[in-house]
């Protein structure tokens, strides 16, 4: 695929995202006779950004791992772990009324915990050559089981009581600006952080030697090995990074929501899986993955939007939109070019 093709694809992605969201809104507005402006509001954009953030973070972690040749299918599990760890820490630090400092500490701590767990996971995949798909599924199952278990231990219930959510960062004066004001200058710091992470992830992948090594490790590990770089070390680094990012994603999810939900498929509810689709859709490009995450985030938030403007659609159905969108995206764009050595353990000597 040439550079021009990639550009085209990225452009196409953004276009598709815009068309889908606006199209759905338009259908809804003509169908229910509601003005489009009322449906796509600044608040909607803000909520979509918030919702996209955890997906984007996990997607960036996942794409790094996969670029280097390891399919981390456990993103969903690590997100769950990140969410429960953050909730537990937050409760431990400040009970049911933690401060903002506690929130940040909890996020950092949760990232550290998931990173540590991913070290074990990475060792299973790389050193012990575990089946990447099965082991990744196992992480999900473990998260699905142990997170509500921990919640039940702490709070006697699968879910936590209300804890605290992160405060928006408001820039006095600038926040009064129309539209941009509340999107940029009165925004969750975690959203802003994610924007930075996306940019840095892009630069590291395409402009630094580590990025070259990651790409080579996934495409032709032997070439990297013969160039004198330890393939396994690169893969350890990316897998641990992917776990930490998924954990951060889970923590961010919690910090935005303010309490842990452990019923059903937990509060993560498939977002880790959607993160995988986001980076596939974004063709392994961090910026593309973030754009795709935004699309899914927006779909997720349509539900709220429909309710606020009074459109009578079952929320059960609207909640399914992101999943349906994933199916459509995968069917239309399914044949992404995967790094050629994904899933194969690398052995430098017989």
């Amino acid at each position: 695929m040439s550079v021009a093709d990639r550009r085209l694809r990225l452009g196409g992605l953004v276009a598709v995202a815009a068309v889908v969201v606006i199209g759905l809104g338009a259908v809804a507005s003509t169908q229910f006779d509601i003005a489009l402006e009322r449906l796509i509001t600044v608040g909607f954009v803000n909520r979509s950004l918030e919702m996209a953030t955890p997906i984007a973070l996990a997607a960036i972690g996942g794409l790094y791992a996969e670029k280097s040749g390891v399919f981390n299918i456990g993103l969903e599990g690590f997100m769950i772990v990140g969410a429960i760890a953050a909730a537990g820490l937050l409760y431990g630090l400040g009970g049911t009324s933690p401060t903002q400092a506690h929130v940040w500490l909890a996020i950092a701590g949760s990232m550290a915990i998931t990173a540590c767990l991913t070290v074990a996971f990475a060792a299973l995949l790389i050193r012990y050559k575990a089946d990447q798909i099965v082991a990744g599924l196992a992480v999900w199952f473990i998260g699905l089981g142990f997170a509500p278990f921990v919640a039940a231990m702490i709070w006697d219930s699968r879910s936590s009581p209300g804890l605290a959510s992160v405060d928006d960062v408001a820039v006095p004066g600038l926040r009064e600006l129309p539209v941009v004001g509340s999107i940029v200058f009165d925004q969750s710091p975690l959203v802003l952080l994610t924007v930075v992470v996306v940019a840095v992830a892009w630069v590291v992948l395409y402009r630094t030697r580590y990025g070259y090594w990651i790409q080579a490790a996934g495409e032709n590990p032997e070439a990297l090995d013969t160039a004198g770089i330890d393939v396994d070390r690169v893969r350890y680094a990316t897998v641990i990074f992917s776990g930490a990012m998924a954990g951060l994603g889970g923590a961010v999810l919690l910090a935005h929501a303010g309490n842990f939900v452990g019923t059903g498929d937990t509060m993560t509810d498939g977002r880790g899986w959607i993160a995988i689709v986001a980076y596939l859709f974004g063709n392994y490009n961090p910026v593309g993955a973030a754009a795709a995450a935004l699309l899914f985030g927006a779909l997720d938030m349509l539900n709220v939007q429909f309710q606020t403007v009074g459109i009578e659609v079952s929320s059960r159905l609207v909640n399914l939109l992101p999943y349906v969108a994933v199916l459509v995206v995968l069917s239309a764009w399914g044949k992404t070019r995967m790094p050629s050595s994904v899933g194969e353990p690398y052995e430098s000597e017989d």
Binding site: Y212, Q215, E219, N220, E222, A223, L224, T226, R337, S340
Partner: peptide, 9 residues
């Protein structure tokens, strides 16, 4: 014999 090159790079 099999080139140690990374095809998409």
């Amino acid at each position: 014999q099999h080139f140690q090159l990374v095809e998409p790079m």
